[in-house]
């Protein structure tokens, strides 16, 4: 299974077929989710209309973790089994995940202001999300810090795995720290159980975010692989010019 996709040519062929489907799925899911979320669903009886921020905030937060998992698994596969496509997938995941993490923080602040009366609290979830954002930035910085791209790939793959072991520990420590510092009761985000009318747009938007990730992931991977072929061509030219 893994071997099958490890071949860059096969990946190019498969992703060529899948990309338009992912694009279509993203547009349809996002369109339906937006309609239900903005027009067809009621306002929350406590949070009022601000609850509509949830339909973009929760998918972003979910994708922040999803992308990191994808990144770490790809990095591990690339490092251990030396699959070139997995390396490319890890590298392509990072900027998407970083964007989603940033958006989760940003929309969280915009939701927090009317709800808690403050843009930012050192809440456990916010803090661990911020740390996750730093991990993404570190991964991308390390990936591009070497003259030899192959070294950047390997070094950042090791970092991704170290980070993956660390994320639960950081999460746990931040939870622990938070309970020491302030009572969690004021900051309950997950209020009463969600009304089914709100559940549907939420699911649709999460689905849209997931297909968006796959879509952009494939675009970026195709770009990386194409650029690799361009580099190889240039090398041939250089050799011919030298001969």
């Amino acid at each position: 299974m893994l071997n099958y996709f490890a071949n860059p040519r096969r990946f190019m062929k498969l992703s060529g077929i899948l990309t338009p489907w992912m694009a279509g799925a993203t547009l349809i899911l996002a369109g339906a989710g937006l309609y239900l979320g903005l027009f067809a669903s009621p306002a929350d009886y406590q949070q009022g209309e601000t609850v509509r921020i949830m339909y973009v905030h929760v998918p972003a937060a979910w994708m922040a973790l999803f992308c990191y998992t994808g990144l770490a698994i790809s990095a591990a596969v690339g490092l251990i089994w030396k699959h070139p496509v997995a390396d490319v997938a890890a590298r392509a995941s990072a900027p998407i995940g970083a964007c989603f993490t940033f958006l989760a923080l940003f929309t969280g602040a915009l939701w927090g202001k009317p709800m808690w009366g403050t843009w930012w609290v050192w809440d456990a979830r916010l803090t661990s999300m911020l740390v996750l954002f730093f991990l993404y930035l570190g991964y991308m910085a390390l990936n591009s810090a070497f003259d030899d791209p192959q070294r950047g790939t390997k070094a950042s793959a090791i970092l991704a795995m170290v980070g993956f072991v660390n994320v639960p520990i950081i999460k746990f420590s931040v939870d622990w720290w938070n309970t020491l510092h302030q009572p969690a009761s004021i900051l309950r985000m997950d209020g009463p159980t969600i009304h089914p009318d709100m559940l549907w747009p939420l699911f649709l938007m999460i689905g849209a975010a997931t297909t968006y990730y796959l879509w952009v992931l494939m675009l970026r991977m195709r770009r990386d692989l194409t650029e690799g072929r361009v580099r190889a061509r240039r090398q041939i030219q250089a050799e011919e010019a030298g001969a």
């Binding site: 972003a60 964007c99 202001k113």
Partner: peptide, 19 residues
């Protein structure tokens, strides 16, 4: 948006803009 336009719309704008 029930008086919360200043919070709801920038959220959507940021998400769809950045993505």
């Amino acid at each position: 948006m029930g008086g919360y336009a200043g919070y709801v719309w920038p959220s959507y704008l940021a998400v769809f803009g950045l993505l």
